[in-house]
Simulated assay, not measured.
Amino acid sequence: MPVGAVRGGSRHRSPGRSAIRHGALAAGLTGSALALVGPAVIALPDQDPQGAATTLELSAQGAALAGPSSSASGARSAVAPVSGPGTSAASADLIKATERDRAADAATAREARARAAEERRAQQAAQERAAEQERTASVTNCGASGSYGGVADSVQEVGNAMECVFPGHDVLGVGSRGGQSDHPDGYALDFMTTSGDAIADCIVENKDELGVSYVIWDQRINTGSGWEGMEDRGGATANHEDHVHISFERGGSPDVSALRSCK
């Protein structure tokens, strides 16, 4: 029967053509479904120096995989070392605090050393004062108390101290002397000895402290500018060969502790 013929009053379409149309529709739906799950390609401007196109592929599968990856990355970030401006400031503060502690420790150590040095100096000074007092006592407290015929108090003080330093000598004071002399006024002493070098040198070395004006010994005189020879007066006593003569300033205030250097 020809295509399109009516059998039994009904018109039938060709089954082949209808099948083709249904197949095409199915194919189209399937293609659309595949298009939804397939990768979409977006072409970006050419940025490759070699001229290759840069593409960005977005897909459902890629997006699905991105979730866990991002979570894992976030987890890694959570345990990553903390860094940044805040941590740098904290580190700087810690370093400064450490430096301050070290500086404080160094200052404390310096202060301790300074105190120890000061204590040593104080102890040494106390020992020196004690030794000085002992030496001074040795030239003032030996028991000598002669007045030497009534000399001035300052002269007697020196004479008594000299006897402590150079004991065993006769000491003469006030007396008549031929010619000009300080003896009659009580401002001269004679230490009788034929070995008077040490006595003469001690008095000269401490001349200012003892209030001495000049010393004569062994036919020489010393007024503070060195020894000078004297004329021969005709005898051992006149030439001061048997005694050391000491003349004193008027109104002197002697410091007999200076005689410690002669002991």
Rank of each mutant, 00 (worst) to 15 (best):
G4M: 11
G9L: 04
R17P: 00
A19P: 01
A19E: 06
R21P: 08
L29C: 09
G31D: 05
P39S: 07
P39D: 08
A40E: 09
V41Y: 06
I42W: 08
P45V: 11
P45S: 07
D46G: 05
Q47K: 11
D48Y: 10
P49Y: 03
G51I: 12
T55L: 15
L56P: 00
G62D: 09
A63V: 08
L65N: 10
A72K: 11
S73K: 06
A75N: 02
S77P: 05
P85L: 10
S88T: 10
A89T: 12
A92R: 15
D93I: 10
L94T: 15
I95M: 13
E99A: 12
D101K: 14
R102D: 13
A103Q: 15
T108N: 14
A109W: 04
A117E: 15
R120L: 10
A125N: 10
A126G: 03
E128N: 07
E128H: 03
A130I: 04
A131D: 08
E132M: 07
E134H: 01
T136W: 00
T136C: 02
T140F: 00
C142E: 08
S147Y: 03
A152Y: 10
D153R: 07
V155Y: 08
V155E: 01
Q156V: 05
A161C: 03
M162I: 06
F166K: 14
G168W: 00
V171E: 01
G173C: 01
G175W: 00
R177Q: 10
G179V: 01
Q180K: 12
A188K: 05
L189I: 00
T193S: 02
T194V: 11
G196C: 07
D201N: 12
C202N: 09
K207C: 07
L210E: 07
Y214I: 06
V215Q: 12
I221N: 13
N222Y: 11
M230E: 13
E231P: 09
A238W: 03
N239V: 13
N239W: 06
H240K: 07
D242T: 15
H245P: 06
H245G: 12
F248R: 01
S261N: 01
S261I: 04
